[in-house]
Design a protein around this nucleic acid. Structure first.
Lengths: 338, 338
DNA sequence: ACTTGCATTGGTAACGATAACATGGATGCC
DNA sequence: GGCATCCATGTTATCGTTACCAATGCAAGT
């Protein structure tokens, strides 16, 4: 079963093929100049020996790992997964591989993760969000590789940015809700000090309400992020008890919005007639639930794709100053609201 | 912004601290013997210089990467994400890092991915499923590292196994459905030739039906995996048109089951009275939807945790023969069935 | 006093690929 | 024919860390 001999190296393959190790190295590269027959002979010998290319040596000597480091808050979130998938698909065409880590929505954890990832010497690093510890900022700035902040529009970006304003996106929903007559509007989100995007959305909500001359006392904190469906349901329960006259609620994500919807269904509260609901993120569930969810499409896949384009441009030297790609989220009106 | 000097190495830190590079190296390891004050001096000097440990050199020299390679069918699936998270949390305590790749439910893609991952010289490799191309099997066998197949119970495992029988799990649901009186039971799954776990579940369904003396002509193929909520809804539509007298349907996952449920809701079909629905995977949505979904808990997190335990045992030399950890999925009865 | 043992530190070589440069031979052009 | 050019391949040194072995100093034990 196990093979206890030392695994073969390029030197072994070279000896067997009757060429130099350098030629073997070239044969394993895409576009190096090796004759067709030599390459085939090398690859055949490699296959016979069971040779497996050793990236670790290549990484050290060439000072290239072909890693793109990525941090996301949670591995179990369809929005971030969409972004990573689009990013991964795009950069893998160019031989780059994603090195993924998750922060649990915690900037201290993010700092640890960033340090760990940078040790692996990635070609670029993509972080979700624009809020970081001072040390994390410093690590990123000094890393000497492209840094891309996503899912946010930081005022003082570290390097490149591909994102959108969470506050403005929610504002758009508030504007619409007010325009169709809702006044007593609530917000369901996470605890203020953890989920920075959620906090931005809440801030956007409050500011927008204010601009319409409306107070915003109906704020339900559903716990530390991520806010699950279950927590959304519980929050809706709280909301109905504390502010029974609420007409509409905006939730920090479609997941909590769906949970809130189910709570209404369990309590026999008509949606949207007695209670309107808005979500965020355009998750699949919002499109298919009955009633379907009014939500905001943040174009998760597009964020990933544009991030990939940006990285490739920078690595190709086609972009020498920080790029700033702004995504415009889209309000999607469905059955849970007028 | 960018720092164009060559980044500092251990030698630079050593010079600044007034010790040898070897001592710097030791100071960066957890349990190496360096005096407390030396370590602190080294770390201080490193911080001042902005030194970042270079894993690539370490990996080559020590022949250790501290990577655990993992392949999953899709990055956007809560079950696999749960497994990866549990695995990651557990092994990261020991300084190991997950190197993740996804196969798009395709064994050819899996083969490419496995080869790519093995080049990075991981300490162990975890694959989802027990079906692979012959070359992939060979690559894994010859890799000289622990191989763990998960989410399945292959008859001829390559190395270790942490999984369950997809066929038996579905059988349990069929047994229950029959015991409470359903006879005309359908199955909604993916196309037969791609999703191997889905195919196993379908096979388990057919076999179980047969054992009850029941035919199983009501098989809806909803397309290539993964089967989304939308596809589940479409499949339910097809089912209702082709087999209108169906009493119950078992879906390949909770996602398609929820989609099927919503289609019933749109068509005014009472669940479970006129149509019972069963899912698979115990996703959050199944617990919270109205009505809540009868499903099968495959213990995704436990698979990840036990895989981690197994890997750590093997790496510690505490396990010298292939391990086989069998998970027993659990039938969860909820409101979409009797 | 002398050995033994431990804790701490240092010197040297090596991990396995490839960047940089060099070379031999074929081909093209005037 | 002579010279430039290009293609395919070889030689040498090196990327930055750490395994391995050695050495020093000091405390404890006999």
């Amino acid at each position: 079963m196990h093979n206890f001999r030392k695994p073969p190296t390029m030197a072994d393959v070279a000896r067997r093929t009757g060429v130099s190790p350098m030629t073997v190295s070239r044969a394993f590269k895409r576009d190096s100049s090796v004759s067709q027959e030599t390459r085939e002979a090398v690859l055949r010998a490699a296959e016979e020996l069971g040779y497996v290319f050793d990236s670790t040596a290549s990484n050290l000597r060439s000072q290239r790992t072909d890693f793109i480091a990525v941090t996301i808050p949670s591995i179990n979130n369809a929005n971030f997964a969409d972004t990573v998938r689009a990013l991964s698909d795009r950069v893998s065409e160019r031989g780059l591989q994603i090195l993924l880590g998750y922060t649990n929505y915690d900037v201290a954890e993010e700092e640890r993760l960033i340090e760990q990832l940078l040790r692996r010497k990635p070609e670029a690093i993509v972080v979700t969000g624009g809020k970081h510890t001072p040390r994390a900022r410093k690590l990123l700035s000094n890393a000497g590789i492209p840094v891309i902040e996503t899912w946010d529009l930081p005022e003082e970006p570290i390097g490149h940015v591909v994102g959108f304003s969470n506050a403005l996106a929610v504002r758009e929903m508030v504007d619409h809700f007010v325009s169709v007559g809702y006044r007593k509007i609530a917000f369901i989100g996470g605890d203020a000090d953890r989920d920075t995007r959620g906090t931005d959305r809440r801030a956007g909500f409050i500011a927008a309400m204010k601009d319409h001359g409306l107070d915003a006392p109906r704020l339900i904190a559903a716990g530390p992020p991520p806010i699950s469906m279950r927590e959304g349901a519980n929050a809706m329960g709280q909301l109905l008890e504390r502010f029974p006259d609420t007409e509409a609620v905006i939730c920090v994500s479609d997941l909590s919005a769906f949970g809130a919807l189910t709570e209404c269904q369990r309590r026999g509260i008509a949606v949207p007639d007695r209670m309107a609901i808005g979500g965020f993120g355009d998750y699949e569930i919002g499109a298919i639930s009955v009633p379907s969810l009014t939500t905001i499409n943040a174009f998760a896949r597009e964020i990933g794709a544009k991030t990939a384009d940006l990285i490739l441009d920078v690595l190709d030297g086609k972009l020498d100053r920080p790029g700033r790609v702004t995504i415009r989220p889209d309000l999607i009106l469905r059955q849970t609201s007028r």
